[in-house]
Design a protein around this nucleic acid. Structure first.
Length: 866
RNA sequence: GGGCGCUUAGCUCAGCGGUAGAGCACUCGCCUUACAAGCGAGGGGUCACUGGUUCGAACCCAGUAGCGCCCACCA
C-alpha cells in the first residue's frame, strides 16, 4: 500500500489555513448559486446588519447558524443561496454621522440635505467594508455576487413600487395624530421604537376653578395643563355628576374649560378627575375627539413651552417644577406630591423621554396585512420555531396599531409623494415623474419599511426575475427573537401582500441573544462585550463558531466565556491530531468499506456508533438544535473515536496483514464521515483535513453522510462496552494503587467463556499487562462484570487498606442497589402496573447488583492481610 | 396592568414519568511512539419550597417564594 503522509504540524494553526481556504471557496464559486441548475432550492436571506457598526458576537451566532444550515444543504445536494447585504438603518446611521459632524462643530443643516446624504454614503462605504471583512473572517459562505443594500437602486425601486401599490389600495394614508416624538432626534417614532421603563414620577392634585365651580385633578404632567381644553370624569361618578356640563377656570390662562363625562376615566384613580390635553396625550386626544374639544399645542418639537405667559421658553422638564411652584403659590396644590412609579417611553435610539405629539404623518393601515401575517402562521404556511414563540407573534400581529412610517430624517428612502401648488397629493411610482411644479414630501420612510421587503426585494422584485421564481419563498429565516416584531412581522406582512399570498419563509428559526458566562447581557458598561474578531484571531473562527453553536438551542440565550472557546479550540486541535494520526497510519478512502462480517468487533462497533451519530445529527438539524448536534459530534469524536477506536486501531494495525488493511479503510471511512459531519460547524479545520485525507477538492462538494443502517450492530456495541468497563476498572485499580501509567505489570486474565476472551491482546496492550512469568504471584484479583477476572502481580506493592476501603465502598453501593431493586420486585403494585421492559430492567439491575456483591465479597476475602 | 419563561454539581446548561448528566472549573497521577491545546483516575447535587396525582416524580398538577423576558395610551 502506498501511503502519502502530508506534513501536518502537531498543532492546528487556524490563521495559516483560514484565509487561504476562504479565498479558494470564493474563487471556486462554491458560494455562488446557480439559478439554472436542476437541484432543489434552499435559500436564506441574511438579516442585514446595520451599516452603523461592526458585527458583534450576536451576529457571529446568527451567521454561524445560517452558514451551518447552508453548508449542510449544499452537501445534501440542494442549490443553495445565502444572500448577504446590509441595512441603511436610517435613524441610527444618521445619528452616527451627525455625531461625527458635531465633533467638527457642524450640524447637518450646515451641510444641507444633499451634502449631508453624500456624507452618509461616504461613511457607509467605509463602515460597510469592515462588516464584509468580518464576515469573511467568520467563514460566512454567502453569495457575494448577489450582495444587496437596502438603499441600492433595485431596492429603492421595490420600496417605491410597494408604497404606490399600498397607497393606491388605500392602505397608506396621511393623518394628524398623536405620535411618539423624540425631541432629540426630532422625528416621529413607531410604537416599537419606544422602550418603556418604570420611572419615578410625582402625582400631584391640582384645584381648577374656585369655590363651587372647582374640581381637583390628579396628574404627573403638570406642565401640559397649559394646553388643557377640558376636565373629564367618569359618567357614573356621583361625586362629580353635578359638574358635568359646567365649566371651570384653568389657572394662569383665565380660559374656561368644560367638564365632560367619559368612560375612559377611572374613578378609583387619583381624584377621579382628569385634565384633558388633546395635543399632548394620546388618551386625551381620543377624549377630545369624542367630545369635540379643540387641540392646543403648547410645546414645540424640542419640548420647549410655546404657550404665552410665564412659562414660555422653558424646557418641558424645567416647566414642570415651575408650574407646580406657581400653582403652590396660588394655593392650588391640594394634596402634596407623592412618588409614583409609572411607565415612561424612551427613544430606543437615544433614550430621550418620548413626547406624545400631535402631528401630520404617514401611516400604514396594518389591519388586513397583519391579519394575513397571522393567518400564514396559524395555517402552517410558515412555521415559527420554537413554537412557543408563535404566541408572542400572534399577540403582536393580532393587536397591532397602525404603523407610523414617516420620519423627519434625511437618510432613508424619501416618501414618493408630491404636493401640487393647490395642495394636490400625488403618489409617484418608480417609472413615473411628478407633474411640474410639484414638491416632494420632505420625510423619509421608517427603516423597517425597506427591511420588510428584504426577502423579495433582494431577489429582484418587482421584476419576476429567475432568482425570485427560484428562491422565493426562502427556506428558513434565522434571526434573534428580539426582532420578531420589528422585522419578522413586517416581512410577513409585506411578503404576503407583494407576493400574492405567498409568505416569505417556510420556517422562521429564532435564536436567543449571547450572554456572558454568568448569564449577564453583554454591554459596554458591564465590560463583558466580546469582539468576535478578537476570539477569531486568538482561537480561530472554528473555535468561535463551535462555542456559539454548542450553546444554541431554539429560542434560548447562549452563554459563552473565554474558557469555553479555549475548550472549543482544543477540540479543533484534537480533531487535527486524530486525523493526523489516521494519515500517518495510512488511513484511506480509496476502497469501499468491507462488509461487517469481514471486520473486527472494534471496527463494527465504531461504524455502528457512527451511523447512530449521523442519524442523531440529522434529527438535530431538523429541529435547529445546534447544541445537540455539536454535543453529539464532540462526544463521538473525542470520547469514542479518539479515546477508544484510535487506541484499538493502533493494536489492529500493528498486527499487520488484512486486519491492518481493513483498519486503515475503517479509519479512513470514519474520519471522512466525521469531517463531513463537522464541516458545517467548523468549516476551516475540516476542509484542510478532509483534503489531506481524501485528496478531494473540497469537503464542501462532498456528499452529506446518511446513516448506514447495515452497520448498526448492537452486539458489537455491547461487547466493546464490556471491554471498556473492564479496562476502566483495572485502570482505576492502577491509579488508586499509584502504579505509574508506563509501569508494566504481569497479569493473568481469565474470561470465563465470555466474548472478551477475543480481546485479550487489546486488553493487555491498553493496560500494559505482561504475560505471567514463572515467578507469577497474584497480589490482587479484580473481577469485572460478567465473569472476567484479572489477576495482577504487583510484587506485593499494593496498598491493601486503600483497596479494602474501595471495595467496601463499592460493596455498600451494590447492596443498596440490590435492596432497592429487590424492593421493587417485591412490590405487587409495581409488578402488576409497570411495563414489562421496566420490570426487565429492574430484574437485570438486581441480578447485576447481586453478582457485584458476590464478586466484591470474594475480592475482599482474597485481599492479603495488611 | 396583561402574557410568557426560568429555578438541576462552583459557573453555564442538557435531561422532562422508571438507577441524577455534559462542558468548563476542581483533586490526584502521568512528557504512555496523533495530540501536555494532551492522557488516565477521581471528588462534587435532599434536581427552589410545600402539598397532590402515581406502583414509581427532577420530570405531571396546584400553591408559595425568588429571578428573568416580552407586551402595555390608566392621568
Amino acid at each position: 500500500m502506498t501511503v502519502t503522509t502530508p506534513e501536518l504540524p502537531t498543532q492546528y494553526a487556524p490563521a495559516d489555513v483560514e484565509t487561504q481556504s476562504y479565498e479558494r471557496w470564493v474563487s471556486e464559486g462554491y458560494f455562488t448559486a446557480d439559478v439554472g441548475s436542476e437541484r432543489e432550492s434552499y435559500s436564506i436571506v441574511l438579516p442585514p446588519p446595520n451599516v452603523t457598526g461592526v458585527l458583534h458576537i450576536g451576529h457571529a451566532l446568527d451567521h454561524s447558524i445560517q452558514d451551518a444550515l447552508t453548508r449542510r444543504a449544499r452537501m445534501r445536494g440542494f442549490e443553495t443561496l445565502w444572500l448577504p447585504g446590509m441595512d441603511h438603518a436610517g435613524i441610527a446611521t444618521q445619528n452616527v454621522v451627525e455625531r461625527e459632524l458635531a465633533k467638527q462643530g457642524l450640524s447637518r443643516h450646515d451641510l444641507g440635505r444633499e451634502a449631508f446624504v453624500d456624507r452618509v454614503w461616504q461613511w457607509k462605504e467605509e463602515s460597510g467594508g469592515r462588516i464584509l471583512s468580518q464576515m469573511t473572517k467568520l467563514g460566512d459562505g454567502v453569495d457575494w455576487s448577489r450582495e444587496r443594500f437596502t438603499m441600492d437602486e433595485g431596492l429603492s425601486r421595490a420600496v417605491q413600487t410597494i408604497f404606490k401599490r399600498l397607497f393606491d389600495d388605500g392602505l397608506i394614508y396621511r393623518a394628524e395624530r398623536i405620535i411618539n416624538w423624540c425631541p432629540r432626534c426630532l422625528t416621529a417614532l413607531s410604537d416599537i421604537e419606544v422602550d418603556h421603563s418604570d420611572d419615578e414620577g410625582e402625582l400631584i392634585s391640582i384645584r381648577y376653578g374656585d369655590g363651587d365651580a372647582s374640581i381637583v385633578v390628579a396628574t404627573t404632567r403638570a406642565e401640559t395643563m397649559l394646553g388643557d381644553t377640558a376636565v373629564a370624569v367618569h359618567p357614573d361618578d356621583q361625586r362629580y355628576s353635578h359638574l358635568v356640563g359646567t365649566t371651570v377656570e384653568l389657572p394662569f390662562t383665565g380660559r374656561m374649560i368644560p367638564i365632560v363625562a367619559d368612560e375612559h376615566v377611572d374613578p378609583a384613580f387619583g381624584t377621579g378627575a382628569v385634565k384633558v390635553t388633546p395635543a399632548h396625550d394620546p388618551n386625551d386626544f381620543e377624549i377630545g375627539r369624542r367630545h369635540g374639544l379643540p387641540s392646543l399645542t403648547v410645546m414645540d418639537e424640542r419640548g420647549v413651552i410655546t404657550a404665552h405667559g410665564p412659562f414660555q421658553g422653558l424646557d418641558r422638564f424645567e416647566a414642570r417644577p415651575a408650574v407646580v411652584a406657581a400653582l403652590r403659590a396660588e394655593g392650588r396644590i391640594v394634596a402634596e406630591k407623592r412618588p409614583y412609579i409609572h411607565a415612561v417611553g424612551h427613544c430606543s435610539r437615544c433614550k430621550t423621554v418620548v413626547e406624545p405629539r400631535l402631528s401630520l404623518q404617514w401611516f400604514v393601515n396594518v389591519q388586513p396585512l397583519a391579519k394575513a401575517a397571522g393567518d400564514a402562521v396559524r395555517d402552517g404556511r410558515t412555521r415559527i420555531h420554537p413554537p412557543e414563540l408563535a404566541k408572542r407573534y400572534f399577540d403582536w400581529v393580532d393587536d397591532m396599531h397602525d404603523w407610523c412610517i414617516s420620519r423627519q430624517l434625511w437618510w432613508g428612502h424619501r416618501i414618493p409623494v408630491w404636493y401640487g401648488p393647490e395642495g394636490e397629493v400625488v403618489c409617484v411610482g418608480p417609472d413615473e415623474e411628478a407633474p411640474p411644479g410639484y414638491v416632494q414630501d420632505a420625510d423619509v420612510l421608517d427603516t423597517w419599511f425597506s427591511s420588510g421587503l428584504w426577502p423579495f426585494s433582494t431577489l429582484g422584485w418587482p421584476d419576476r426575475t429567475p432568482e425570485l421564481e427560484r428562491f422565493y419563498p426562502t427556506t428558513v429565516l434565522v434571526t434573534g427573537y428580539d426582532i420578531l416584531f420589528f422585522w419578522v412581522a413586517r416581512m410577513m406582512m409585506f411578503g404576503l401582500y407583494a407576493m400574492d399570498g405567498t409568505p416569505p419563509f417556510q420556517t422562521v428559526a429564532l435564536h436567543g441573544i449571547v450572554r456572558d458566562q454568568f448569564g449577564k447581557k453583554m454591554s459596554k458598561s458591564s465590560g463583558n462585550v466580546v469582539d468576535p474578531l478578537d476570539w477569531i484571531s486568538r482561537y480561530g473562527a472554528d473555535a468561535t463558531r463551535f462555542t456559539l453553536l454548542r450553546g444554541a438551542s431554539p429560542g434560548s440565550d447562549v452563554a459563552i466565556s473565554e474558557d469555553w472557546v479555549a475548550g472549543a479550540r482544543n477540540f479543533c486541535n484534537k480533531i487535527w491530531n486524530a486525523t493526523r494520526f489516521a494519515l500517518m497510519n495510512g488511513a484511506t478512502t480509496a476502497a469501499d468499506l468491507p462488509a461487517p462480517a469481514d471486520l473486527t468487533v472494534a471496527d463494527r462497533w465504531v461504524l455502528s456508533r457512527l451511523q447512530a451519530v449521523v442519524a442523531a445529527v440529522n434529527a438535530g438539524y431538523d429541529d435547529y438544535e445546534f447544541a445537540k448536534i455539536s454535543d453529539q459530534l464532540y462526544h463521538f469524536a473525542w470520547d469514542e473515536v479518539c479515546d477508544w477506536y484510535v487506541e484499538l486501531a493502533k493494536i489492529q494495525i500493528s498486527a499487520g496483514g488484512e486486519v491492518a488493511d481493513r483498519t486503515r479503510l475503517v479509519l479512513g471511512h470514519v474520519f471522512d464521515a466525521l469531517l463531513r459531519l463537522l464541516h458545517p460547524i467548523v468549516p476551516f479545520v475540516t476542509e484542510e483535513l478532509w483534503r489531506a485525507l481524501t485528496g478531494g477538492p473540497s469537503v464542501m462538494t462532498a456528499p452529506w453522510p446518511e446513516p448506514a443502517h447495515a452497520y448498526a450492530d448492537q452486539p458489537a456495541e455491547n461487547e466493546i462496552a464490556a471491554l471498556q468497563e473492564l479496562v476502566t476498572e483495572v485502570r482505576r485499580f492502577r491509579s488508586d494503587q499509584g502504579l505509574k501509567p508506563g509501569q508494566r505489570v504481569a497479569a493473568r486474565l481469565r474470561f470465563g467463556g465470555t466474548a472478551l476472551a477475543a480481546h485479550e491482546v487489546a486488553i493487555r496492550s491498553l493496560l500494559r499487562l505482561d504475560d505471567p512469568t514463572a515467578s507469577f504471584t497474584a497480589t490482587a484479583r479484580l473481577a469485572v462484570g460478567e465473569e472476567a477476572v484479572v489477576e495482577l502481580d504487583t510484587a506485593g506493592a499494593i496498598d491493601v487498606a486503600a483497596e479494602r476501603r474501595r471495595l467496601e465502598k463499592d460493596l455498600t453501593a451494590a447492596r443498596k442497589e440490590s435492596a432497592q431493586a429487590a424492593g421493587k420486585l417485591g412490590n405487587e403494585q409495581f409488578m402488576s402496573k409497570a411495563p414489562d421492559d421496566v420490570v426487565a430492567k429492574v430484574r437485570a439491575r438486581a441480578a447485576q447488583a447481586d453478582a457485584d456483591i458476590a464478586r466484591l465479597e470474594a475480592q475482599l476475602a482474597a485481599l492479603p492481610a495488611s
